[in-house]
Design a protein around this nucleic acid. Structure first.
Lengths: 339, 339
DNA sequence: TTGTAGGCGTTATCAG
DNA sequence: CTGATAACGCCTACAA
């Protein structure tokens, strides 16, 4: 690899001039500049990021803290990562994939202590998240995909749960349904303070109330089996339910099994919505489920972008909420008559 | 961040002594060493990776070239990434996620020209892949997840397609089936020279022949609709088929629809296998499909590990094949009578 | 066993 | 407008 010195020699100028010419960091005579640029091109010169980073204290590398793959689908996490990586790349940054161990704080201490990254991108943020406190205290710039209970002035990009719930409710009530049920994420995740579980639950309740829709919740099935059971119990307790929104993919499988078991069909007897799952996953179902697809790649993109904004200069904290997109499937229709 | 100099001052020794003590790169008197270690601990000293890399020409960073998310599920790619990242971490390396643009070669030139990474991890390798030629020519160490038609002496970890096909065939013929059909990946992927499409196709044919099983292939449905059509045509042309192996998730959805449409059920009338899809995805189906799950995380892990081996020292090229794991679902059974 | 000196490639400062 | 020089933090000779 050729260095600044090689270019300098070839162009017959001093190293510092080459640097200046290439970075536009100080005026350089047009002729000299041209000579330098040509020499650089001929040598295929590429600035060494390490040297640059050592000198400037800025590596233009971001770390994405990556949680150990949970049950769920993982597709969403993947899209965070690719979205963030793409945005980073567009802005001249790189993304380091940092798998999170059992000791996230040690992990953070390690990765930030190396001087390798300029900032950290957090995902799978819980309502109360020790990682944010550590990073704040350590003075490490970071942004979140998701958000804590009280994000303060930390940059974040999260789902607009309220808007998403409203859209779902509008969809369902527009079809004529009078009662909506909601299956939250698994008890484990919910108890863990996983943001989407808490917030989506709250917002669905609020949206239904606002719309004057009957509403049933309290179920948290995390598997097909649990989904099946929850569905049976739901209809036992609330036979008037004609529409159901489910957050867990696997639970939805169970619900469909339950529907079939009682000789019902979707959407004729039940309108079924998948919430916070990818359209990809929804297309695995038969019939294809109507989905509220999270803007995962977009959130990743935003998270990276706002972190870079913060690194490149101050500015007010950016806090963005993006609603899910309603992807119509073949699982929503008018309520069954007689309900 | 405290530097070597800070530690040296605190321990009242020269910088080089600190370096030596901490790296064990030359003998240091026990007493001095202890003093140094304590000083380092007290200051929370962490070696600066950039400085170290600049000096040693080794960054201990690997780039994972990440293709733009294809149709398919993406879960597999994600597991490559996490597997690789985990293995890298265990071995003291870091993984850079490098999204691949429309111009993969430029991308490679860029990422390797920066001096930022020691080596490159390739995935989604096609039978003929220009990237491998570029990297070889450029003298950049790399390993592949997957492999080209002729991998030469390049390190790779790939699926053991032959063993996988044999296991699938054994499973099916063990149940008593006499004729197996195979739906390959989409025409596009196949035409693209995507390794798994080519190889799995060949190996299934070979395994069936070996086992004396009737075999039908030539279908390449890439969507639910195409899967449905392919299934109808398959039974029209080969009504004797009782078992079907499908590579594309979406095509499987279509097949199930076709099964239902003719009043059939899985597995009573058709044994359905999902090939190269995750058990996660298989669990989305009803009934849960028997799956040949690719060892994605393991391949990622291996790919990273062998690249690191190569960087850390020579040794013969490592070329590993890992078979898929057969995850039994509720979609395989004895053939329908009367077939 | 320990210290000094030089250099990795870059940028910033300060003279010229 | 341009050139020398000194960092950045580390490692590896070489010298003491």
């Amino acid at each position: 690899m050729s260095s600044l010195r090689d270019v300098a020699e070839r162009a017959q100028v001093a190293v510092s001039t080459v640097s200046a010419a290439l970075n536009g960091t100080r005026p350089v005579a047009p002729a000299t500049k041209r000579r330098i640029e040509q020499a650089a091109a001929e040598l295929g010169y590429r600035p060494n990021l390490l040297a640059r980073g050592l000198q400037s204290k800025r590596t233009r590398i971001l770390a994405l803290l990556f949680p150990a793959p949970r049950s769920g689908f993982g597709l969403t996490e993947m899209q965070f990562a690719t979205g963030a990586a793409e945005a980073a790349k567009e802005l001249g940054y790189h993304l380091l994939l940092s798998p999170e161990s059992a000791e996230p704080i040690d992990e953070l201490r390690h990765i930030t202590g190396l001087g390798l990254v300029d900032g950290v991108l957090l995902m799978e943020v819980r309502m109360d998240d020790e990682r944010t406190e550590f990073l704040s205290a350590a003075g490490v710039p970071f942004s979140m995909i998701g958000r804590t209970r009280d994000p303060g002035s930390v940059d974040y990009a999260d789902i607009d749960f309220a808007a998403t719930a409203r859209e779902a409710v509008a969809h369902v009530s527009g079809l004529g349904h009078r009662t909506l049920a909601f299956f939250n994420l698994s008890t484990d995740l919910y108890a863990d303070g996983y943001g989407p579980a808490t917030r989506m639950g709250e917002e669905f309740a609020a949206a239904a109330r606002e719309a004057g829709l009957g509403y049933v919740d309290g179920f948290r099935p995390g598997s097909a089996e649990e989904g099946r059971q929850a569905f049976d119990r739901l209809l036992e307790l609330h036979p008037e339910v004609t529409a159901l929104a489910v957050m867990d993919d696997h639970a939805a499988v169970g619900v469909l099994a339950g529907v079939a078991a009682r000789g019902w069909r979707v959407p004729e007897h039940l309108t079924l919505l998948l919430v916070l799952s990818s359209a990809q996953a929804a297309a695995m179902f038969h019939p294809r489920l109507t989905t509220l697809e999270p803007p995962s790649a977009e959130l990743g993109r935003l998270g990276a972008r706002m972190l870079i904004d913060r690194l490149d200069g101050a500015g007010p904290p950016q806090q963005r909420l993006v609603p899910c997109r309603l992807v119509p499937g073949d699982s929503s229709a008018a309520p069954r008559s007689g309900a």
